[in-house]
Simulated scan of single mutants.
Amino acid sequence: MHVDIVPVGEVDAPVKREASAGLRTVYDCEVTVHDAQPVPDGSYDANRDQFRAEEFIELASHVGSGEKNIAITPKDLFYRRRNYVFGLAYLDGNGSVISTYRLQTSSDGGFSNRSAEDIFSDRVRKEVVHEIGHTLGLEHCDNKRCVMNFSPTVREVDVKEENLCGTCQRQVL
């Protein structure tokens, strides 16, 4: 499998490296990083002061050169009535997106004494692995440690591991 990372807006090099590392580690896939793209026209919702996640998925799908493509952006994303999303993907689709905007909280809720930078790196890896998992047909998993567990807060992202549980692994690997 080939996954193309599509940076949208100003995405720092360490974020791209962590995303690549997470995907290679969990899915043992080829990863490329596309040229940076501008934020999609019409994706900004002034009433919410946020960006529509679907527009970023469409961009990744059309611009990316992989079998699976994931947009990464520092913009704050929302989907439908949700206040925000860390990422979004359509089951079995080829496009997905993650936002680093809300992953940059300085603390992991007291789980460790690791640096904010290390915690942020973990979150980026977990979210790209999670969203690409959806494109591979994985739904949310009930196992709180599995990367495919639904995690609406950073604290829940921090609790789960970067890897797929055995049940999810058997479905895709």
Rank of each mutant, 00 (worst) to 15 (best):
M1Y: 10
R48K: 13
F120I: 01
D12Q: 15
F78I: 00
V124E: 01
E67V: 06
T73F: 09
V129K: 01
D28S: 15
L164W: 02
F150W: 04
T153P: 03
T32F: 08
L103D: 02
E139K: 14
D108I: 03
Q37C: 12
V128I: 03
F86I: 02
S43L: 14
E162P: 08
L138M: 02
N83Q: 12
I72T: 00
C168H: 13
F150E: 07
C168T: 09
L91V: 02
G22A: 06
I70K: 06
R24V: 13
K16V: 08
E67H: 13
G9P: 01
S61M: 01
E58I: 11
N47R: 15
Q104S: 14
C165T: 00
F120K: 02
F56W: 09
N163Y: 12
V31W: 05
E131A: 06
I132S: 07
T153H: 05
R114T: 03
F56M: 10
R125A: 03
E10H: 07
Q104A: 15
N83M: 10
D118R: 15
N143K: 10
D118S: 13
D142K: 07
R145A: 07
E156W: 07
V128Q: 00
V97D: 08
R80L: 12
V63Y: 00
H62M: 11
A13S: 09
L88R: 07
R102M: 14
V172T: 12
M1H: 05
V15N: 00
G22W: 06
T100A: 14
L59D: 12
A53P: 10
D41P: 07
E55W: 08
L59Y: 11
P7T: 09
C165V: 03
R114E: 11
A71L: 04
E127W: 00
Y101M: 12
F111K: 14
E161H: 09
K75L: 10
N69W: 01
P74S: 11
I5Q: 07
D92N: 14
N94W: 01
I5M: 04
F56T: 01
V63A: 03
V26T: 14
R81M: 15
T32W: 05
Y27W: 10
K160L: 08
S20M: 11
N47T: 12
E18A: 14
P7A: 13
P152I: 07
M1R: 14
G166R: 11
D142H: 03
Q50R: 13
V147G: 07
G109T: 08
V147I: 08
Y90I: 02
S43D: 15
F51R: 09
K126A: 09
V128D: 02
V39L: 11
Q37V: 02
F51L: 03
L91T: 04
Y90W: 03
N83E: 11
K68I: 12
V11Q: 10
E10L: 11
R80A: 15
V85S: 06
D76K: 06
D118Y: 06
S61F: 03
E156V: 04
V85W: 04
N143G: 05
I57W: 02
S112Y: 06
S151H: 12
G95S: 02
V159M: 15
D108M: 04
G133K: 02
D122F: 10
Q50E: 11
R155H: 09
K68E: 13
S151T: 13
G93I: 02
A46C: 01
